[in-house]
């Protein structure tokens, strides 16, 4: 599934919720569902530090596509991480670099991504794009 269609699917899912409570309950559910990372990956090397919550992120490049795995110590952050991975993971570096993540605004979670929010999500997106950019450059060099 392309980035755009996964994002559209998520926007549709969130349209079902009438209240913020339902929305957050869903994010919490997603956070609890996300497989997360084995403890061996929860180390400094993979850590994206925020002053509120922490995110760990790994990336793998396979057959021209980038696969991300991530985890967080906070459930809400983890739920949003889940959404980001669902949209971005398994796509080509170019598609990831070019995507603007506007779906988060559409589902009313943009405030979690403000640079001052310091939950690690903003830095995580930067890191995801950076991984994609590196793989993109590597591909071009081949």
């Amino acid at each position: 599934m392309s980035i755009e269609s996964s994002a559209a699917e998520i926007v549709e899912e969130f349209e079902m919720f009438d209240t913020w409570l339902d929305k957050y309950n869903y994010i919490i559910e997603l956070g609890q569902e996300l497989e997360g990372l084995d403890s061996q990956f929860k180390e400094q090397k993979y850590l994206i530090s925020g002053c509120q919550s922490q995110v760990w992120l790994t990336a793998e490049f396979n057959d021209g596509k980038v696969y991300f795995k991530a985890d967080s110590d906070a459930i809400i952050t983890k739920g949003i991480v889940y959404l980001l991975i669902r949209v971005l993971s398994g796509n080509t570096p170019t598609a990831i670099v070019d995507y603007d993540l506007s779906f988060l605004e559409k589902i009313g979670l943009k405030e979690h991504l403000s640079p001052t929010r310091s939950n690690g999500l903003n830095s995580m997106i930067k890191q995801i794009k950076l991984y994609a950019l590196v793989y993109q450059t590597k591909e071009k060099q081949r």
Partner: peptide, 11 residues
């Protein structure tokens, strides 16, 4: 987690 609690308290 404090971030989770703080986010909901804010709501």
């Amino acid at each position: 987690h404090h971030y989770d609690a703080g986010t909901i308290l804010d709501q």
